[in-house]
Amino acid sequence: MTETVGIVIVSHSSDIAKGTADMVRQMVGSEVKVAFCGGNPDGGLGTSVQLIIDAINAAWSPKGVAVLVDLGGAETNSEMAVEMLEPARRDLVVVCNAPIVEGAVMAATEAAGGSTLAQVKAVAEELSAD
């Protein structure tokens, strides 16, 4: 099987993160690796840099990983997580400027066809283009 870009979903809510990942798996299929994290380590709403790093590594692919986020802190913490990755991986992770559910489904659909990380990001961001 050819490698596909991995998808990471980062929400403030673990329910939203898990539900979004479920939608991707059911709609797109299992050929794309999907990892998710949501909530802070105490079980409340929030995002955790360490959990985001773990999710990126879980979804890792040599073609890279596209991260979909919800609100404010999810984005800044995801950017921080990318900076804390081992150097060889940093340049192969992008945080997409896209709605989390729609972006994740479309990014995964594009990834399933074997597209590059740049193509996957562009498709996810098509929705916020205009």
Partner: peptide, 14 residues
């Protein structure tokens, strides 16, 4: 709707 659209797109990309 969404699911058929994903299937059509995935097939087209092949």
């Amino acid at each position: 709707h969404a699911r058929p659209a994903v299937k059509l797109t995935k097939l087209a990309k092949k």
